[in-house]
Design a protein around this nucleic acid. Structure first.
Length: 223
DNA sequence: CTATGATCATGA
DNA sequence: TCATGATCATAG
């Protein structure tokens, strides 16, 4: 979908310079620079904005399970902003896997590593604004504060307790104050291997960890 | 299938 | 109205 790319930034400073460069530009302008066609809407291009920004900033992780900027250890996330200036959607972080059942400690978890250092890029996401006319905001780097880390760890521990007990298929998005578990798949028929309550392998719909907007809203206010 | 990137669409 | 559950595209 997106061919042209910028070279990976070598330093954090270089990355932030590029962020300053794109702040105030529209998605249409960025697409032009990269010679990319802007889709009519996001219905069939849900990851388009994220891919566009990654190309522009020179993310080099591709679809590897690594931070977007491998050399810098930084993960990039777009933050869709509604007309009220608040996050419009929750933020997907990573999938819930069996391996994580073995990662009994928060500090060793995949999600903790992913959230260790995040580049948040706010972007207008009001449906009434044509995609090409939506503005990119000021990006900022974030590391969880001790308090934020504790909040996430609390949710993660409660959720993972249930995953370990084989209750992953019963977990709903209603659980977790800031971190939730929701389906993450092409559709509800996709099956992955999980562990049932009696400890046997079973096929379940894959799920992922998401940060609620109540959490990312705080980041935006403090960012 | 899994990973990446997320937003859509409907029920409560 | 809005969060939950479902879904879309692409590469390997």
């Amino acid at each position: 979908m997106i061919d042209k790319k910028f070279t990976p930034p070598k330093t954090q400073k270089e990355l932030m310079c590029r962020c300053e460069d794109l702040a105030g530009k529209t998605l249409g302008q960025l697409a032009n620079e990269l010679q990319i066609v802007v889709p009519e809407n996001l219905k069939r291009h849900k990851g388009w904005v994220g891919m566009l920004l990654e190309s522009y900033l020179g993310a080099d992780a591709g679809n590897q399970a690594e931070p977007d900027f491998i050399g810098l250890g930084i993960e990039m996330k777009t933050m869709p902003i509604n007309a009220l200036g608040q996050p419009k959607e929750s933020t997907y972080v990573c999938t819930v896997t069996l391996e994580q059942s073995g990662e009994l400690h928060w500090k060793d978890s995949w999600i903790k590593r992913k959230l260790n250092h995040v580049l948040w890029v706010p972007i207008e996401a009001e449906p009434s604004i044509p995609l090409a006319e939506r503005f990119v905001g000021n990006a900022w780097l974030w590391r969880p504060t001790a308090e934020q880390d504790t909040m996430l760890e609390r949710d993660w521990s409660e959720l993972m307790d249930r995953v370990v007990l084989g209750e992953q298929s019963e977990i709903t998005a209603k659980e977790g104050e800031y971190l939730q578990i929701r389906p993450k798949a092409a559709n509800s028929k996709v099956l992955a291997t999980g562990i049932s309550a009696v400890g046997e392998k079973e096929k379940i719909n894959p799920k992922g960890f998401y940060l609620r907007t109540s959490f990312t809203r705080k980041l935006l206010e403090q960012g």
